[in-house]
Simulated assay, not measured.
Amino acid sequence: MTDALGEALHLMRMSGSFYCRTELTEPWGLTMPDMADCLWFHVLTSGSCEIEVDGHVTSLAPGDVLLVPGGEGHRLFSGSEAETPLVTTLPHTFETDNYAILRHGDGGAVTHLVCGAVRFDHPAAKHLIKVLPHVLYVRQADDMRATIDLMAAEARNLRPGGEAVITRLADVLVIQTIRSWLANDPAARTGWLGALQDQQIGQALALIHRDPAQPWTVERLAHQTAMSRSAFAARFTELVGEPAMRYVTRWRMHVAMNRLRDRDSTVSEIARGLGYESEAAFSRAFKRIVGVSPGQARAG
């Protein structure tokens, strides 16, 4: 059986990441900036913390993990009376270009956090992030305990190679948090996520994601999933929210956007690599789905 959801998780390789180990003493507060196209994560390894996203406050205890999948700006603080300066205005000690240590606060009780903002390159991973809840919070999950304990140990005593260990553990923890939500929240069984977990439609989605350049048709996808054309077309639209061939085209444009940003290929090469016989046909499809031409998308 095809595990389309598992494949989407497998493709969640992070890039353009920034990680920060924070040592905070009460009273303290921080404002995280809006980071478009990023996912914010916070892991509390000791102490206590309040996080406010869009006016909603969540209290974290050691071992808790909170994600802000859309990268919206938000506040962290020890108490409502604490000032919350923008974190980018505070002095950091940079261990590497992508890893820093922040010490901040007024000398009271100590809180340790590992925070970060990460991006995802693969279209399947990006799409998965977009359908996650506004805030994703996991409280002391048993299956994540070993990862959090290792991260806390490294954060307490940063040894040679500790930066590499913490950043890799953070990547693992983000995926574990998403997986925990997928397994336990009924909302994860609806829409595109629900379609990924459907035996037949999930198989079709996996085929499209693996090889968007194939000359897919409704008939071919139906045959691959052992369904009749009419039954497949109706079920795909019901679960995914749009007809199969529109999804194929839109998925190709997700892939195209990624390749345009890389700047390693010409528009003509991208068109051929996605199964289009001409650059003109690809450009028409791209503008219809994205709203601008490939050249404008690359320039922007």
Rank of each mutant, 00 (worst) to 15 (best):
290 V>S: 00
248 V>H: 11
199 Q>Y: 03
271 A>Y: 00
266 T>R: 01
209 H>A: 10
279 E>K: 15
260 L>D: 01
257 M>T: 00
252 R>A: 07
204 A>D: 13
216 W>A: 05
259 R>T: 09
223 H>A: 12
248 V>M: 12
274 L>E: 03
255 V>R: 12
277 E>S: 13
276 Y>M: 02
273 G>H: 04
254 H>W: 13
239 L>F: 11
271 A>K: 00
283 S>L: 04
253 M>S: 01
255 V>I: 03
296 Q>M: 02
212 P>D: 14
243 P>W: 06
203 Q>Y: 03
242 E>A: 09
212 P>M: 01
211 D>H: 14
210 R>P: 03
263 R>S: 10
215 P>N: 09
222 A>Y: 09
293 S>N: 12
291 G>L: 11
297 A>Y: 10
295 G>D: 15
214 Q>M: 06
279 E>H: 08
285 A>W: 07
292 V>N: 02
250 R>D: 14
262 D>V: 04
205 L>I: 14
209 H>P: 00
199 Q>T: 06
265 S>W: 08
233 A>H: 11
214 Q>T: 02
297 A>T: 08
281 A>Y: 05
224 Q>F: 13
253 M>I: 10
227 M>W: 00
202 G>Y: 10
219 E>C: 04
269 E>V: 02
277 E>V: 14
257 M>F: 00
269 E>Y: 05
213 A>G: 10
284 R>D: 10
289 I>V: 15
286 F>I: 05
281 A>G: 08
252 R>S: 04
